[in-house]
Design a binder for these strands. Structure first.
Lengths: 253, 253
DNA sequence: TCAATATTTCGATTCCTTTCGTTTTGATCT
DNA sequence: AGATCAAAACGAAAGGAATCGAAATATTGA
């Protein structure tokens, strides 16, 4: 086995388990520990791993906070344009519902100055971004806190905000499956989205093109229930032509 | 497991919960406590955490807002001690209500590891601190968001958490007036505190000595409704003797 | 042969544990 | 409030096992 190939195998092992021991590697590859150490030294110099006493560990994994940043940065440009368009839908004297998610946080941050607007949201980060703004009344929708999205899970929307009927609801999607249903990873989240949809007369969905044609376990609501879809043009061609026939207003940014 | 990886795991644990105990870590990793202590010493030297008696705590948040808040925070030491005592009241298999406020955020941060505990709170910062902790179910109590305390104002507690009856409620006070009523700056906040008090069978009030004998516009509830008061000894002498005659358990830290 | 690669050897270093005497902490009792 | 006591946590030291780096040596392939 070539030295280069052996190093590649070491990297694979590290990606699988997050760590590798010098002793183990030497035994597996049938070479001396000194050889393995020199491999690790070379890979460390290339910043591909971190050499430690006894072996090596993978590069520092991203923290929860960093993971959210990462999600935020994925498709960032499309999300920003989508958010800009969405934020323009908000006008004075309206009540609005915000779902959680990185795209909707963008929408909140790009919201123009308004007056006499009521915002209800399940997302703590959105609430915290909006609460200082003048002309805005922010309502946090209560429920069990879901860590990965920093938002609440709503069991009963009617109780949650005292029967508020909003003019518009802004929803995001974890994924949109082949049957044009907005789907998510858990029934809890799906139910929350259903409740949010029911709270508003007009439903706006923001979804960048990476969300299309992906399955997930729990259906939240059908695209036909949506009044306006804001997305970008990067989706597969077949999807787009079907979407245009659906009878729902779609804006591409 | 490699030593370096173990240290990284310690850092992750600290980022999640804000603290870590030597005993717990030694048990989790299957190494001696001496080893953990040496790990903590090394990480402390790198300024990645602060080693303390019994374990380590995360570095204080360095955001401008947090720093400002901390600098403005008078009586920080007393609050920390009060919080420590309060956190010890929390045991497994309980449901707990948290009011908002800097002292109660401290309580949340100093909460020991627990299992099967349900926490309901109006404070977003408390919810965000607790949501990653294992053994905890965090419920955000919905309502209008009040910027200065980063918390919600509850109009109707029964609706807010589906009629949850908690074992204990931890309340803070903006001020306590001459008639031994907990008072606050607005009727909205006072009503919220009243609602939180009604939600629990046992009410614990945390209040450092600077809160005593100050008036405010809106009465929240009377001290006689409280089951346990945790405070420090810096209050005027006359207050203290009256307090001891009130028939409410008081602990001084 | 030359250069890259791998191995062996060996003293130095790191890691981890056990032991032991000291300090801190929290609870109880005046 | 102050004193007291036991449990928990601590630091320092010592020793053993694993690992390391460096240098000399052996192997491999053009």
């Amino acid at each position: 086995m070539l030295a280069e190939q052996r190093r590649h195998q070491i990297m694979l092992e590290l990606q699988r388990t997050g760590q590798a021991r010098t002793t183990q590697l030497a035994e597996n590859f049938g070479v001396s520990e000194v050889t393995i150490r020199s491999d690790l030294e070379i890979l460390d110099a290339k910043k591909l791993l971190i050499k430690t006493h006894g072996g090596a560990i993978a590069l520092p994994a991203s923290s929860p906070a960093a993971a959210f940043e990462e999600r935020m940065n994925r498709n960032f440009d499309a999300k920003r344009r989508i958010a800009q368009m969405a934020a323009r839908q908000i006008i004075d004297n309206q009540s609005i519902v915000f779902d959680s998610g990185s795209t909707l946080l963008q929408v909140a941050m790009q919201m123009p100055p308004v007056s006499n607007v009521v915002v209800a949201t399940t997302a703590m980060n959105i609430a915290q971004h909006l609460m200082y703004r003048p002309g805005l009344d922010v309502h946090m929708i209560g429920g069990r806190v879901f860590p990965s999205t920093v938002s609440t899970i709503v069991s009963d929307s009617d109780k949650a905000v005292g029967g508020l009927v909003a003019h518009q609801a802004f929803l995001s999607a974890h994924a949109i499956d082949h049957a044009f249903d907005v789907v998510d990873v858990s029934e809890d989240i799906a139910r929350t989205k259903r409740n949010l949809v029911r709270m508003a007369r007009r439903v706006i969905l923001v979804a960048d093109s990476s969300k299309w044609d992906i399955g997930a376990s729990s259906k939240a609501f059908s695209l036909s229930r949506v009044d306006l879809i804001i997305t970008d043009t990067g989706m597969p061609h077949g999807i787009r032509s079907r979407l245009d026939k659906l009878g729902v207003e779609v804006r591409y940014v």
